[in-house]
Amino acid sequence: MKDVIVGLGERSYPIRIEAGLLAQAGDHLGRFARGGRLVVVTDENVAASQLPALTAGLRGIALETIVLPAGESTKSWAMLESLTDRLIDLGVERSDRILAFGGGVIGDLVGFAASILKRGCGFVQIPTTLLAQVDSSVGGKTAINSAAGKNLVGSFHQPDLVLIDPDVLATLPPRELRAGYAEVVKYGLIDDLAFFDWCEAHGDDVLSGDAEATVEAIAHSVSAKARIVGEDERETSGRRALLNLGHTFGHALEAETGFSDVLLHGEAVACGSALAFRFSAAQGLCSQEDAARVGFHLARSGLPATLAEAHVDASGEALVAHMAHDKKMEGGKLPFLLARGIGETFLAKDVDLAEVARFLDGER
């Protein structure tokens, strides 16, 4: 087992990574079973493919189960209301632990519900997608979407424990695995050229399900995120903002495609990262060679690296209009994650949105 600690003082918690961890779930979750019971929230797809393994691994601990529809549309006001009502009906107390068993949608929704239910309940993340395992399950960001944009309503609420079982990825569709891989690559692009080199050498192994490469990708990504979160939990110093590489462009692409299966979140991050590097190159900040290298690796991994590949044909003005709703907007200015090279990402607060719109029009 690999253990990574998110260091937040009294609120520190472990991330445990081990193949076959679901079969040992009772060993790790038994201490949270008040009165011998746990409450799990999952979606229809995970309930069908993974819930029996979790139930068996709990070894007799009673499990109350709430099954929600799968998909990004579940991160909504209506579903948040429905979920909190059902948790109240089950008699969930502040000392209980709610299990978020699923991908990023379930983790974000359940974490937010836990943060507001009775002014704060404990919860455990058990992520079942690569994207959730390497990114969204770690760090305490929880949210739902609104009509104006993605993750605009939410809170910081840290889990008590994260359990990561790479074996659950065996049932993940290849497209979902590729989408998660985009977040793995991101950690190399931010501040770790050596890890990007590793991705170029071993990315195919991760995408083909090689166990050793998958564990290495997850452990390295989680360690990188835990370190950054420990330094800047609520993005007050700007350090944690580096984790948003590709997200400003990416969220605009998601909004333009209606937060639908046309473009998965990880696919949007991949395209957004490629756009961020090409925009940086256009501004003379990084070399064209580095920008091309990033785009080539993402495209070679089956991820969209251009607007056309992301199925987006909106004008630059329309995409920038989506960015205007970004939660990172400060004083009418939107910080952008740009790059001086691979592994040299920085936060730029003086980007001209009109210049971004012209760049995106050129990308069309």
Rank of each mutant, 00 (worst) to 15 (best):
A143L: 00
F156Q: 09
A292D: 06
H247M: 12
R119A: 04
L38T: 02
L161I: 13
M79Q: 15
D135S: 11
A148L: 12
T171M: 04
S315W: 00
L347Y: 00
H297K: 07
G331R: 09
S82R: 09
R86C: 11
A321R: 13
F359Y: 14
R175K: 12
D160G: 14
S301P: 04
L161H: 10
V229R: 03
W77M: 14
C121V: 04
R97W: 03
Q125F: 06
G35E: 03
A182P: 09
A182Q: 00
H251K: 02
A308G: 12
I228H: 01
E344Q: 14
L51H: 05
L58M: 01
K118W: 07
G57I: 02
S95Q: 15
V312Y: 06
A56F: 15
W198G: 10
L172M: 14
D96P: 13
D96N: 15
G120L: 13
F279L: 15
S82A: 14
R240W: 13
V294M: 01
S146P: 08
D108L: 05
G238D: 09
D261K: 08
S315E: 05
E289D: 14
I88F: 11
G9P: 08
F336W: 01
L263K: 08
G20P: 08
P69F: 14
V185A: 03
D89G: 11
D192N: 15
G20N: 02
T257M: 02
V168E: 08
L353K: 02
A276Q: 01
F259S: 04
T236R: 14
F32W: 15
A321E: 12
A56C: 10
V4K: 05
A179P: 07
